[in-house]
């Protein structure tokens, strides 16, 4: 298992439909299972577009991408939607949660769109409670609407939702930038503990180089992207 490639990119080119300029031209690379990847780069370097392509929400001009030994580039848009639902957990900078759902409903929502994730969770209540405790969230928050939570709490609930159903890939896009430094540190620790525990692979994108200490290796996105050089 250790040697499997989780993500294998041979090529990935993107430009906006109306424009001539190539925004993304990714150098070939791969991510091994458990080989958490830290990508940093300035804003506007195409990080977010790249993540959108990996999630199957944005269509590249041309690409040859294999994810979890599936030829991702050949999937239809709705197959990509299903693939994303089953295999990804995602955390963003902020606004991760549906404000009108309770914490519990927000976390369970990930399983609502994926039978595979739902299958991995034998007892929803128990699993949510376990994740809450693991992420240092008090259980009194369970039935609170997400809009009444602090930003730090929201980010941790987002982690719980990303983790539930044990998806193979966790994508985090600047998840700490709304947090202060203390919260940032405990957030990163909690994130890593849980990801290691369920054997997922983390794809972490940030402009904050300081976070690279949590990873074995970090990559400058501008070197990844030939279109920038």
């Amino acid at each position: 298992m250790q040697t499997t490639n989780i993500i294998e990119i041979a090529s990935c080119v993107f430009k906006y439909p109306q424009s001539q300029r190539i925004i993304l031209d990714i150098n070939p690379f791969h991510v091994r299972s458990g080989g958490h990847l830290f990508l940093h780069g300035k804003s506007g370097s195409g990080k977010t577009t790249f993540l959108n392509i990996l999630c199957g929400i944005t269509e590249p001009l041309k690409s040859d991408i294999k994810i979890l030994e599936t030829n991702f580039s050949n999937l239809s848009p709705s197959q990509k939607d299903r693939f994303r639902a089953d295999n990804y957990g995602t955390i963003f900078q902020q606004f991760n949660l549906l404000p009108y759902l309770s914490v519990k409903e927000n976390i369970a929502l990930a399983c609502g769109f994926s039978k595979q994730k739902a299958y991995h969770v034998s007892d929803m209540e128990e699993e949510i409670e376990r994740l809450m405790i693991a992420l240092d969230l008090t259980s009194t928050l369970l039935n609170k609407q997400a809009m009444h939570l602090s930003v730090g709490e929201q980010q941790r609930v987002a982690v719980a939702r990303a983790l539930i159903g044990a998806p193979k890939i966790i994508i985090a896009d600047e998840p700490t930038s709304a947090l202060d430094s203390d919260a940032k540190e405990s957030f990163m620790k909690l994130l890593f503990t849980q990801i290691e525990a369920q054997d997922s692979t983390l794809l972490f994108v940030s402009h904050d180089k300081g976070l690279s200490s949590y990873f074995q290796a970090d990559y400058d996105f501008s070197q990844f992207n030939r279109a920038l050089s």
Binding site: S78, D81, R84, Y88, L97, L98, R161
Partner: peptide, 15 residues
């Protein structure tokens, strides 16, 4: 934002 979150979680265009 709500729709973007749902899309991220795997909601199809159809949903």
């Amino acid at each position: 934002r709500e729709i973007a979150i749902l899309r991220t979680l795997g909601a199809t265009i159809k949903s």
